[in-house]
Simulated assay, not measured.
Amino acid sequence: MNSLRVMNDIVELRQYTLHPGARDTLVDLFEREFVTGQEEVGITVGGRFRDLDDPDRFVWLRSFPDMATRERALHAFYGGSVWRAHRERANATMIDSDDVLLLRGPGLAAPSTTGPVVATICHPLDPAAFADHFERRLRPALTAAGTPAQAVHRSEHAENTFPALPIRTDADVLLWFTAGRAPLLPDLSTRLKSAPQQLRLGPVGAAAPEA
C-alpha cells in the first residue's frame, strides 16, 4: 500500500521525556490501565516503545479516524474515570509530554516481535517535492537495501481542537518506520531543513532493551 496516497487516519506520535528511573513505572501503568482505557472510548492505541538511546524517553502512537472523533474521544478519556484515577501517578513520571506530531497515515500497531523499530523523521524544505522524491527514488532504494519503509506518515495541519494537549506547530514532516536496523540514507541535505532524525525504539513487550 502506498501510504502517501492512502492517508486514512489522524495519528499522534508522542515522545515523553521522563524523570530519571521513571520509565518502567509509566510503562507498567500505561499497559495496565491506559491501553484499554483509551480503546474503550474509541482511541486506537498503537506501538509503545522505549527509546533505546535515551533511558528516560517513552514513545508511543495513537490514532483516530478523523479530527471530530479525536476531539470526542480525548474529551471522553481525559474527563473519564481511568485518567482521573491514575493521572497523578502518570504525571509524576513526566518532565515533558508536549513533543507531539500530528500526522496523517496508517498508524503503527504494536509490533508482534520484540526486535527494534526505527522511526526516521525528515523535515523537508519543500514537503510536496520531497514526498514525490520519496516515492520515486527513496522508497525503492530503501526496499532494495533490505530496509523497506513501513507506515509512512506526513504532517496534518488541522487545528488542534483539544488544546489541553499541545501538538507541535513548528514541524512539517515526512516519517516512516523500519523493522530492524536503521536504514542507510543518501545525502538529503539539499532537500531537508536538518539531518534526518532516527529514533531506535524497543517495543515495550521486549524482555529487555536491545543495545
Rank of each mutant, 00 (worst) to 15 (best):
A171C: 12
G202N: 14
R84A: 15
D172K: 00
A211I: 12
M1V: 09
S189N: 00
V11G: 01
P106D: 02
T113M: 09
V6W: 12
L101S: 11
T147F: 01
D126K: 09
F162K: 07
D126S: 12
G47L: 05
Y16P: 00
L52T: 10
L29C: 03
F177K: 02
S63D: 01
A22Q: 14
E210Y: 09
N160R: 11
S3G: 15
D56W: 11
R137M: 07
D126G: 02
L192H: 04
P203F: 02
I167K: 12
R137D: 11
T143A: 14
T25W: 07
S97A: 14
L52H: 07
F177T: 03
E39A: 03
P140A: 08
L61E: 06
G79L: 06
P111V: 03
D56K: 10
P111S: 06
V82F: 13
M94C: 09
L101T: 00
W176Q: 04
D51A: 14
L29Y: 06
D54N: 13
E31D: 14
A85K: 12
G205S: 13
S112M: 12
R57M: 10
S189F: 02
A119V: 11
D51I: 11
R181A: 15
E135S: 14
L13P: 04
G205H: 10
A90W: 15
V45A: 05
D28R: 13
H153K: 01
L101C: 07
L13E: 01
A208E: 14
L101P: 06
A92E: 08
T44A: 13
L103F: 04
S189Y: 00
S63H: 00
L175S: 05
D56I: 08
F130K: 08
S97D: 15
G80V: 00
T114P: 05
V204F: 00
D28C: 10
R23A: 14
L108N: 11
A179C: 10
R32G: 07
P140F: 09
P65Y: 03
P124W: 04
A73K: 03
A206Y: 08
P209G: 06
I121W: 09
R48C: 11
R89V: 08
R181W: 01
A85N: 10
W176A: 08
F130N: 04
P203S: 08
H75M: 13
V59D: 02
V45Q: 05
H157E: 14
L138R: 04
R136E: 04
T93G: 08
A76G: 12
F58H: 07
P127G: 07
P20T: 04
R89I: 03
P65K: 01
L165Y: 14
K193A: 08
G180K: 06
E159P: 03
V82M: 12
W176D: 07
P106R: 07
N91P: 00
D132M: 13
H123G: 03
L108G: 05
L102Y: 05
S81Y: 05
G180M: 05
M1L: 08
I121Q: 08
S112P: 02
R168E: 04
A110K: 03
R72W: 03
F30T: 09
E156Q: 13
T36Q: 15
D172M: 00
L188M: 01
R57W: 02
G46F: 00
D9C: 11
L185R: 10
V6E: 15
T113H: 15
L13C: 03
P65C: 04
F58E: 00
A141Y: 03
P106C: 04
I121F: 05
E39N: 11
G47D: 06
T161D: 12
T17I: 10
